[in-house]
Structure formats: structure tokens, C-alpha cells
Nucleic acid binder design. Structure first.
Length: 504
RNA sequence: GCGCCGCUAGCUCAAUUGGCAGAGCAAGUGACUCUUAAUCACUAGGUUGUAGGUUCGAUUCCUACGCGGCGCACCA
């Protein structure tokens, strides 16, 4: 972004070196390099009996330190496996040593040479050839590092969270621990795919741009398609499309993708986030709960190494089975209120007594108020992995009526640390019932509830062809990763979290 | 949306009641052929987030705005 006028003196010096290199016929940006060993592999290769004549290696990476001593120079090369010291010497390099003096911290270089151990005890590559692979024209905001017994200690460095999120590339380049968070993320997501693949699930992709949005209660992002001259919504959930696939005979499907919700942002909400949804024909919500707890506890164990993890002074135990608490009974135990019979006024009184005063509550009624009671009296106490089951019908317009109680649905949500992690139910497959639920939602929408479902006639048509009984689950992957990677903010597990544009 | 805090050199941070804006690292020049937070000497580097105001004088006090962090509110 910086123009020529405002380029810093540090950058100017690097550009001068680039010009000097190119004047010598050395390209600042090479095409390829034949690396034979990573830093870690090279280090593992050396044995002390090899003395000064260790094996030859070609290593490549970014210069993480550079200590010139005149006619010799020590540096560290960083690559994804770690770092290795290189020893550059005029005697060993001849003319190429001129190039060394035009290197900067952060440059990508390739080094060919043999391994030896320095007097100070560090296994090092004695460079015989230096190849500049890519010049760094802008200094990375790195601190100085010192190798200690406990690892690498950094002095200074990149602390400003704004810079870390905006310039994630710099954050990653400078912080190995940030890179490891995202490696862990990838590892866990791969594991989830494998878990479902092994159980006969088919991974599918459904539309992100949708003419009608549904499958959750949330405000959408709206965009416009020029050729069709119509509004399109970014999906808030995958649900309705995945269930259309059950109608089509794909009996086990899952999708991992982004949902978009036009709502507030905080430590646990990013406007786009990763959702895993999976649906299984001929299963009900009990089957799906059992599958969910195996999946979640397995993901934690695969990611962390244990099923019990300490987070914020609390040990979360992911050993299945997780306790089940009934929505109605859980609330009654907490505050004595029976949602089956409670009036709006009684529910409002409970919300006021246990929660924070808010004018917004006054406008709630029915299902939304029941939800508010739950969030106020029960949700904050659900620290250990816990299933809440059997939600009131008005709260769950896509869930099948409970087989034992027409006021409830066969729905569960998994809570961990007081936050929702997963949501699933016995899927409503009676098109006439679904039509009535949509109509109820339409009434709520007309009454001003922006988050009520829209009426999706095509979805009803699909159900009319006959959808097998099925269970479905949605799991928020980012929140799962926050616990597995022990990160306090959702921004720390999303590579490029949403930010306002930089001030000019 | 509300409240609190922050924004000073490329990075991390100082600056007394309001009195010439500083340090470490990074950078440049020189010295140094086993250094590792290399060392030593010298040099350069700033519209103190932006726009106003108060004042002889503002990094400092006041107002507005921008961006960020935290909390609250909103939020399946």
C-alpha cells in the first residue's frame, strides 16, 4: 500500500540491494530450487563421528537471522520443519560471497553445502552455494529470537492484534505457533471427513447463493445477480438443500462449508464461519446424538491427544456418553418455571430475575421468549459437554414432533463451555406438517420477527415426493477448534477474520 | 448500538504540573574468517491515527471522527 513517496528507508535499502543484485545478473526472484532436505531432516542426518565432513544437503527457506562478521556470516534458515543454521564463508563461497552481502533478513534462499557441528555445538550447513530464491522487499515484523533449552524465546515481535489479523501472512511468517494452530485445524477437519467417509457418508456441495435462505433463524447477507436481475442470499445453513438430497436417494450426506449470518461479531461469532452438517436416512435424533458424541470426543482426542482438556481453569471431559438434560426439566430445576404452562408474563419475569435488564425482551413472546428463558437460566451453566433435548415446538420448525409429546420436538443441542456446539433433530419429513410450521413462521415474520423462516415451497414439494425418516446434525467447526487449539477468540482459528477496511 | 482502554520510528515500548519526542531491536557506513538476542564505533530514521479546539507552547487537556482490543447489548 505504501507508495514510492512514503516507502520507508528500510525498504529503500532492500530495493537498492535488489538493484545491485540484478546489476550482477542475479535474479531477485528465482523459478525453482531442488531441495533435498528440510531443516529437521538435515539436522537428523548428522552424527558426531562425521566430524567436519557431514553429508551434503540442499536446504531452502527464509532467512530468520543474519549475523555478518565481515568475511564470514552465520544465519538461520527457517522452513516448515524448523530452523537450521548456515555458515557462509568467503573462503568457501568465493565470488558468491558478494551475494551474501546483498542478502537481507526474510529473504528466501537455497543453500547447498555439507553438515558440521560448530564450536558452539550447533549442527550447521557450511555453504558451498547460495541461491537467492525470493527477495524480501518489506521487513517482517519479527522479534529477535534466542534458542534456549526450553525452546525459542522471542524478544519484541508482532503483538498488535490488529496487525496480526489484518496481515495474517506476516503473523504466520513470524509465529510458528500460529502456523501450528492452522495445521491443527486442517488435521482435525481431515479427521472429520475421514470419520464420515468411513461411515458411508457422501461429501456434497450445495448452493451458497440462494434465492431463499433457511435452515436456521438468522439475518442473511443479501446480494444481487445482475444477469438474472434478482436478489440472492448467502446461505445461513445448508440444511434444506441437504435434506432435498435425502429425497433424491443420497442416504448419507455431509457438507463442510461456510455459512453467513449478518449479525454481531465477538469472540465467538464471525460473520462467516465453518459449519459441518450431516444427514442420515433411517436414523432419529437418538442415533444422531450417539454419533455426535463419538465424533466430537474423537475430534478432541485426535486434536489434543486426550479426552479431558483443561481450558480456563476448568477440565472439560469429552468422554462419551455426554449427559442429557431435558429442555423443559432443565429449566424447571433451575428456576421452577414450567414452560409447558407458563405465560409470556411469567417467562419475562424469570428472564428479568435471572438475567440482564433489556428493552429487547419486552417485544419477545412465545417461542422466542422460551428461548430467552433457556439462554438466561440454563445455557450459561452447561460447561461440561451436555446434550439438551426435546425442545418446544415453536423453537424448532424443521424438527419432527416428539413421539411422546406433541408440544415438543425431537431435537438436541450440544453445549460446551456454556456455548452451543451442535444442533440436531429427527428431521420433519411430513410435508403437510412442514407446511403448517412454515405458515406459523410466516405469521411470526409478519409480526416483525426478521429471523423467522421464509416459506420454501420447493422444499415442501421435495418432501411431498417422500423423504425417508432421517436424523441430521450441524456442528460449528470454529468453536470446536477454539477448544481443541486452546484459543480464546474465534479470530485465532480463522485465517482471515472479518475486519473493517484499513483507514487510508 | 453503549461503555472502558489503546493508536508515538519498520517492530516493541518510553516521554515528570502542558516545556526542544527518546531507547532497544531492525536499517546504513566502517571493523571483525566459529557467531547465535554476536560485538564495537559512527550515521540516519517522526505531520505522535485524522480533523478541530484551549494555550505563549499539546504526545500530554477538550470535542468529533477513524481503526483495533476488551466488556455489555444483539445473535440458534
Amino acid at each position: 500500500m505504501s507508495t514510492v513517496e512514503e516507502r520507508s528507508y528500510v525498504e529503500a535499502a532492500r530495493r537498492d540491494k535488489r538493484a545491485a543484485l540484478e546489476a550482477r545478473g542475479v535474479p531477485a526472484f528465482a523459478y525453482r530450487y531442488e531441495r533435498t532436505h528440510t531443516a529437521a531432516d538435515a539436522l537428523a542426518l548428522y552424527r558426531d563421528e562425521m566430524g567436519d565432513a557431514g553429508p551434503r544437503v540442499r536446504v531452502a527457506g527464509r532467512l530468520g537471522s543474519l549475523r555478518s562478521k565481515g568475511k564470514t556470516c552465520f544465519a538461520h534458515l527457517e522452513d516448515p520443519s524448523g530452523r537450521i543454521q548456515i555458515y557462509l564463508r568467503q573462503d568457501g563461497l568465493g565470488e558468491e560471497y558478494e551475494l551474501v552481502q546483498l542478502l537481507d533478513l526474510d529473504d528466501h534462499v537455497g543453500i547447498e553445502g555439507s553438515l558440521f557441528r560448530t564450536k558452539a555445538g550447533e549442527v550447521t550447513v557450511r555453504a558451498e552455494h547460495v541461491t537467492l530464491l525470493a527477495k524480501s522487499l518489506r521487513p517482517l515484523p519479527r522479534g529477535k529470537t534466542q534458542q534456549t533449552e526450553g525452546g525459542v524465546v522471542t524478544y519484541g515481535g508482532l503483538h498488535d492484534p490488529e496487525l496480526r489479523y489484518r496481515q495474517r501472512y506476516a503473523d504466520l511468517a513470524v509465529h510458528a505457533e500460529v502456523r501450528s494452530v492452522f495445521r491443527l485445524r486442517s488435521k482435525v477437519v481431515s479427521w472429520l471427513r475421514r470419520f464420515l467417509d468411513e461411515r458411508g457418508y457422501l461429501e456434497v456441495e450445495t448452493p451458497v447463493l440462494q434465492p431463499l435462505y433457511g435452515g436456521a433463524a438468522a439475518r442473511p447477507f443479501v446480494t444481487h445477480h445482475n444477469a438474472l436481475d434478482m436478489p440472492l442470499y448467502l446461505r445461513i445453513a445448508d440444511e434444506l438443500y441437504l435434506k432435498r438430497l435425502l429425497v433424491g436417494g443420497l442416504e448419507r450426506v455431509y457438507e463442510i462449508g461456510h455459512d453467513f449470518r449478518n449479525e454481531g461479531m465477538d469472540r465467538t461469532h464471525n460473520p462467516e464461519f465453518t459449519m459441518l452438517e450431516f444427514y442420515q436416512a433411517y436414523a432419529d435424533y437418538s442415533d444422531m446424538m450417539a454419533l455426535t458424541e463419538v465424533l466430537v470426543s474423537g475430534a478432541v482426542e485426535h486434536g489434543v491427544g486426550t479426552r479431558a482438556v483443561e481450558r480456563g481453569g476448568v477440565t472439560l471431559d469429552f468422554t462419551a456418553p455426554f449427559p442429557r438434560v431435558s429442555f423443559i426439566e432443565g429449566i424447571r430445576e433451575r428456576c421452577g418455571l414450567d414452560l409447558r404452562t407458563a405465560s409470556d408474563g411469567e417467562m419475562l419475569a424469570v428472564v428479568r430475575r435471572f438475567g440482564v435488564e433489556s428493552e429487547a425482551h419486552e417485544e419477545l413472546s412465545g417461542g422466542r421468549l422460551q428461548d430467552e428463558v433457556f439462554k438466561t437460566v440454563l445455557e450459561p451453566h452447561l460447561i461440561q459437554p451436555t446434550f439438551v433435548v426435546d425442545y418446544p415446538k415453536p423453537l424448532s420448525p424443521l424438527a419432527k414432533e416428539h413421539r411422546d409429546d406433541p408440544a415438543l420436538t425431537e431435537r438436541f443441542e450440544l453445549f460446551v463451555g456454556g456455548r452451543e456446539w451442535a444442533n440436531g433433530f429427527s428431521e420433519l419429513n411430513d410435508p403437510d406438517d412442514q407446511r403448517r410450521r412454515f405458515e406459523d413462521q410466516r405469521l411470526q415474520r409478519d409480526a416483525g420477527d426478521e429471523e423467522a423462516h421464509t416459506y420454501d415451497a420447493d422444499y415442501i414439494r421435495a418432501l411431498e415426493y417422500g423423504m425417508p425418516p432421517a436424523g441430521g446434525v450441524g456442528i460449528g467447526i470454529d468453536r470446536l477448534l477454539m477448544v481443541i487449539a486452546d484459543q480464546p477468540s474465534i479470530r485465532d482459528v480463522i485465517l482471515f477474520p472479518a475486519m473493517r477496511p484499513e483507514a487510508q
